[in-house]
Amino acid sequence: MSENGFAHEVDVTVIVNGERVSRRVDARRHLVDFLRLDVGLTGTHTGCEHGVCGACTVQVNGDVVRGCLMLAAQADGAEVWTVEGLSDNGSLDALQKAFVERNALQCGFCTPGMLITAADLLARDAKPSREEIREHISGNYCRCTGYEAIVDAVEMAAGTRAGATQAGGGSQ
């Protein structure tokens, strides 16, 4: 391929979970397949491949995105975080603990995407209402739980976060 020209195979370098990953990928390869097949990160799941179900949700340059609606080629130079990395660095810990305690997952297939979406909400708003939680996660399908336990768990995690902030540097 010529520099800045068309190619059916594209060389990409992506910072995935803090590690530099370089691969040559088909131009048509979407980000989820790149993560799962080229990098071996199977925690991100493929649920619909047309941007509806949210199972493939990952973080790209700080935004939550649908991994199936972004090409791997587009991620060249980007920073991508998946459930594996966000578990290893503890970012999701409060949510994960709450999900386990509240049984906010059954089959677990939607869970990584759900957690990443929930974390996005808590990053914007530390104390969301139940309605805000429901609205924010409404692009992530869960077929098992009926959602209530997930909403409870996000609330629980939000409580944990607020408490931690207060204990860490609160004025009381």
């Binding site: 800045n4 020209g5 068309f6 190619a7 059916h8 594209v10 088909d26 131009a27 048509r28 397949d33 491949e49 047309h50 090409l71 080629a73 587009q74 060249d76």
Partner: peptide
């Protein structure tokens, strides 16, 4: 549900984008 093959190019700027488009048809 994988797309059919296509080529990809990342445009640097607007003239580049238009030039690429002209090239690709």
């Amino acid at each position: 549900m994988k797309p059919a093959q296509f080529a990809y190019a990342r445009a640097k700027d607007l003239p580049h984008a238009l030039a690429l488009w002209a090239e690709a048809g």
